[in-house]
Every structure is written in C-alpha cells, then in structure tokens.
Amino acid sequence: MSPEAPERLPPLRRKSVSFGWLDGLLLALLLAAFGYFAWRTQTVLYYKWDWSTVWPWIVRVDPRTGGWVPNAILLGLATTLRLAVWGIMLAAVIGAVMGWARTSQRLLPRLISTSYVMLIRNIPPIVFVFVFVFFITSQILPSLGIADRAARLSPEVQWWLSVLFGPTNRIENFIVGLICLSVFTGAYVTEIVRAGIESVPRAQVEAGNSLGLTRFQVLRDIVFPQALRNVIPPLSNQFIQMIKDSSLVSLVSVQELTFVAQDIQISTQRVFEVLLFVGLIYFLICWSLSALFGKLERDATRVRG
C-alpha cells in the first residue's frame, strides 16, 4: 500500500426492502376485510350518506350582518382546545407537585399523593366526573360568584376572558370541567413524574448535595430536567389521552366538541357523518400534539450528545 493511500470507506450496502409471501398474505387479508366491511355498509346497513347537513354546522351566515360566523362545531372545537391547553398546564403542575410528593422522604406528602393517585386510578372516569362535579365543585364554586364578577368587568377584559376561557356566562361551567379533567389526568401524570424522578440515578443527587445545593435546588436543577427528558414519551401519551378524555366533561354540560356533536346528531339525525367528522377533528388535534412531542423528544436526545 502506498503511503498516500486514501482513507478507506466502508463498502456500500444496498438497503434491502423485504417483502415476502407473509407480507403479501397479510396485505390481501387486510384488503379483503376492508372490502367486506365496505360491502356490508353498502348493502346490509343500507345507510344513505349525506354529508351536506354537516357543513352548515361549521360556519353559518349571520342574518343580521350577512357575514360568516363560526357555528356549533367550531365553537365546540374552541372549547375543546381551551380544555386541552389549560388542562395540560394544570395537569402538569398537579403531576409535578404530586409526583415530587410521591418520592418525598416525609410521610404526610407521600400519604396525600398516594391516596390521590390510588383513589382516581381505581374508579371509572365517569363516576369520578359525576362525584367531583355534583358533590364537590358544584357546592363550592357558585359561592365564589365568578360569573357575576366576570359580568361586571370591562368589555376588553371580558373579551380576553372569553378568548381564554370561553363565553363569560358559561365560565363557571368551563372551570368546573377543566378542574375535573386536570385533577383526573393529574393522577396519571403524577405516576409518570414519579417514575421519571426515580429514573435519575441517586449519584446525581449526591453530586448536587456534595456541591452544597439544597434539596429543592437539586430537585429543580438536576433531577427534574433529567426526569422530564426520560418521560417525554409516556407524558405525550397521557396528554393525548387527556384531549380525548375531555369529551367526558360533556356529561356535565361543558359544550365542547363531543357535546356539540351529540346535539347536532339529535337535531339532524345524521349520526355517522357528524361522528366521523368530529372524530377526524380529534384525530388532527391529537396527531399534531404527538408530532410536537416527537420533535421535543428528538431535540432532547440530540442535546445529550
């Protein structure tokens, strides 16, 4: 070999696409099942599809001004998005505090957080929603007179409130639904946070301690950032779950997407069209959120080097 021999590169390897007879069989079965399903819905179910009834529920023409205004579906979507954004934030805070309490060395915080998680994890969500709303928040919230106070605020503040929390006359109802959803999701986030905290090696805490950091500083600056990074996938799962669970608060008349969909189904009799359309909207919201979390996850692992 000459002294100036070029640096040897690895041999080129063709990326092989493996598609065997088993893949072909599975694909054929899948297509057959799909065809059968289509045939059944066409012949046996005998359902006449009529999508045109759905569109007016998205936007309508305001008879007074003649302009387009959002109708029930868009209003419901807005409420669902508000529930999602505030819910994620609230559930994250609850989960962070309770998750810390779960790993605390002191008995009381551990007792409180463990009871909280055990209680919520082990009862059906519908039971929780009803008990929480009718026995707890309905007794407390009206005494605060939030709706009355909101009605007395200046128009600009009211406008902002309606952007952030929805129509002011329904604000109490929204807050009840939001708290309910966050407390419910918070229990699952708590468990994820606990697992995250426990995934950070004890040696990291010792290194922080040996530098003279306080217990809180170690938690905030060393344990939490690493814990969070480790739990991005389950956390994104839980938040997507929460968006779908937000349909539960339609049970207590929060007028979000599912509530609106049921209303429209009753008045138009177009059950499948409305359901499928709303389902598509949920899919798009959740899919965007998983894409966002996917990006977060990639960024987090890139920084680690």
Partner: peptide
C-alpha cells in the same frame, strides 16, 4: 457524576450561582 443535561461550562457554573 457530571450532570448530563448541562454543558461542561454549566456543570461548573450551576453550584456557584445557586449555592454561593
């Protein structure tokens, strides 16, 4: 036991800022 989520510089800066 370096802090893996911080750069080398920040590993050295963190405790100075927080504890001192």
């Amino acid at each position: 036991n370096l802090f893996p989520h911080l750069s080398v510089l920040d590993n050295c800066v963190l405790a100075q800022r927080r504890a001192r």
